[in-house]
Design a protein around this nucleic acid. Structure first.
Length: 232
DNA sequence: AATGAAAGCAACCGCGAAGTA
DNA sequence: ATACTTCGCGGTTGCTTTCAT
């Protein structure tokens, strides 16, 4: 081994072949020990790079596609509570990464807080843009509401058709989706305020997660108070 | 159609916490 | 107790794509 010479790691965008090697390695050996991944998987990347690529892009449970209005509302809500604690926020959005949320917030909301420093003409353009964006959001929400309603109707139809003691996989999927929607709405009370006008029908069962959330929020409030006390 | 600006996103960097020998 | 390694986080950079003029 050449102790005096540092290993030259590859940098920049990942190739398809590199992705394939990493996925194959993680699937057969599991996550962790990222520094050894480079040599074991035949990659010329450092551990950090491998971990990042896996966590932010290759993990099978990642949710692809755009951030939904509901997710956006969650981000806003949690960011208001926790600030830039992206990984904490990400834990509340299954399938989304801290990096994704961080990028989203920076591009969509960071600028908004700076608009007070922007000259009027630019501000006008931005306001117009934002109006367009909000209109698109409303349309998307209506579409989503329609889809939710359709799911419920289909579920009821299937239930009445199959008055037997078991559920088909499709029915289970739909029920899980509905449960997820309901869970989300009970976890984030602010969402009901934000989406109240869209006629969301949200049954909100008091599940045990709610208590956990409340505890977490209180914990954070305490943290905030402590910080404020320190600062003063 | 060309071009510059803005937005979006993947990846890198530095730092600190946790784990380990 | 301490030095070293590993991991995870938040901030930042730089490239690509999209949009506006």
């Amino acid at each position: 081994m050449y102790w005096g010479v540092e290993q030259e790691w590859r940098k920049g965008p990942w190739t398809v072949e590199e992705d394939r090697l990493l996925v194959h390695h993680v699937n057969s050996h599991g996550e962790g020990r990222w520094n050894s991944v480079a040599t074991l998987a035949g990659l010329k990347r450092n551990g950090k790079s491998c971990r990042l690529r896996w966590v932010n892009y290759l993990r099978p449970d990642l949710k692809r596609g755009k951030i939904t209005p509901r997710e956006e509302a969650v981000i806003l809500d949690l960011h208001a509570r926790w600030g830039n604690r992206w990984s904490t926020i990400a834990r509340s959005l299954p399938g989304r990464t801290d990096n994704e949320i961080k990028n989203y917030w920076r591009t969509h909301f960071k600028k908004k807080s700076e608009t007070t420093l922007v000259e009027p003409t630019k501000l006008k353009t931005r306001l117009l843009k934002r109006q367009k964006f909000q209109q698109a959001q409303r349309q998307q929400l209506q579409l989503q509401q329609y889809e939710v309603d359709m799911k419920k109707i289909m579920l009821l139809l299937e239930e009445s058709e199959n008055k037997v003691g078991y559920m088909t996989p499709t029915m289970m999927d739909r029920q899980q989706e509905n449960m997820y929607e309901e869970q989300q709405s009970s976890q984030y009370p602010m969402l009901s305020q934000l989406y109240g006008s869209t006629n969301y029908v949200l049954e909100t069962p008091m599940n045990e997660d709610f208590g956990l959330w409340e505890g977490l929020w209180n914990l954070d409030d305490n943290h905030g108070n402590l910080c404020a006390a320190k600062a003063s």
